[in-house]
């Protein structure tokens, strides 16, 4: 026979009935741990927000965890419109718009290419298609550093080095493995008979893709878009490597330059406002998409 302690513990098993007393020792421990950990996770966001709303004197006097005594939005305005990188003093807005100009075409092209790849790989396999896919997947694990310089040469040859277009192409290439995998697995889960029926009905490669498969795969498009938006927006390495002029830096690169510039007084409030601004796009996507975000990373991660 199990002793009573074991029994209580077993009773709180994940799918068992809810324990009758809400405040037994086990529960207090579970909730206590979770709440403390949650505070650790939430803290940086909180610090970012309160710091960005304080005046500089208040920051230098006080406690970074204390809420602002006097709320000011000036740091936000300054971060967006006036912060300096080098000689440019028009704020993060420049980087923001650069990132948007990089993001939109990258998104469209990479999702289009990946969905077609996934479709071809799952339904129209040809000799060698699995090999190319295998290489693509291995490529996702190789440190990007080893491919950086050859791509510089390729882009230079194509006259695209330093341009936004070049960076877009780089994002398309490096977003390809994960998104192709995502679409391939999704299309592979569609019953093969549906594909056969469409072929008997005389539909070819593109007709089946556009008429049958696309209307069925909206959720996976959303997942893919989420992965790409956060991935491309958060990129730093490619932005700093393939954009040659500070005018065209994406937001993350510009943010790093603003905050880590050694000149002048450190304006912590402006820095935090800028940081928060940069994080805002993925955060909004994250909080708005909820479960789909989780599904996206799980789909990308679990079957590697």
């Amino acid at each position: 026979m199990a002793d009573s302690g074991t029994m209580t513990a077993a009773m709180t098993g994940p799918r068992g009935p809810k324990p009758k007393r809400a405040f037994n020792r086990t529960n207090i421990m579970i909730y206590g741990t979770l709440i403390v950990v949650a505070l650790y996770y939430a803290l940086p966001l909180y610090v970012m927000i309160v710091t960005s709303l304080k005046g500089l004197p208040e920051i230098q006097m006080g406690n970074i965890f204390a809420p602002p005594m006097e709320i000011t939005f000036e740091p936000w305005v300054k971060a967006w419109a006036q912060a300096c990188t080098g000689i440019n003093c028009d704020g993060l807005s420049r980087g923001f718009w650069n990132s948007v100009r990089i993001l939109i075409p990258s998104l469209i092209i990479s999702v289009a290419v990946a969905s077609v790849n996934g479709y071809a790989l799952s339904m129209w396999k040809f000799k060698g298609s699995e090999v190319f896919f295998g290489i693509l997947m291995i490529g996702a694990f190789i440190p990007y550093q080893i491919m950086l310089y050859p791509i510089v040469i390729l882009l230079r040859e194509a006259g695209l080095y330093g341009s936004l277009t070049g960076l877009v192409l780089v994002h398309v290439a490096f977003g390809m493995p994960i998104n192709t995998l995502l679409f391939r697995n999704y299309f592979a889960s569609i019953p093969e008979e549906l594909f056969k029926a469409a072929r008997v009905d005389g539909a070819g490669f593109w007709a089946i893709f556009f008429r049958i498969m696309l209307p069925m795969s909206l959720p996976i498009f959303v997942v893919s878009l989420i992965i790409q938006v956060t991935g491309i927006w958060n990129d730093f390495l490619f932005g700093v490597t393939y954009i040659s002029s500070p005018d065209r830096y994406p937001m993350t690169v510009q943010l790093n330059n603003i905050v880590n510039s050694v000149q002048g007084v450190k304006e912590y409030n402006v820095n935090m406002a800028a940081t928060l601004l940069t994080g805002l796009v993925p955060l909004v996507i994250y909080f708005a998409s909820g479960k789909l975000f989780v599904r996206g990373i799980a789909a990308g991660a679990v079957k590697g």
Partner: peptide
């Protein structure tokens, strides 16, 4: 091609376009 053979086919899972 399947569509050029003058056949019609019915599948186990029905395979209707959803």
């Amino acid at each position: 091609e399947p569509s050029e053979r003058g056949i019609g086919m019915v599948f186990q899972s029905y395979a209707l376009y959803p």
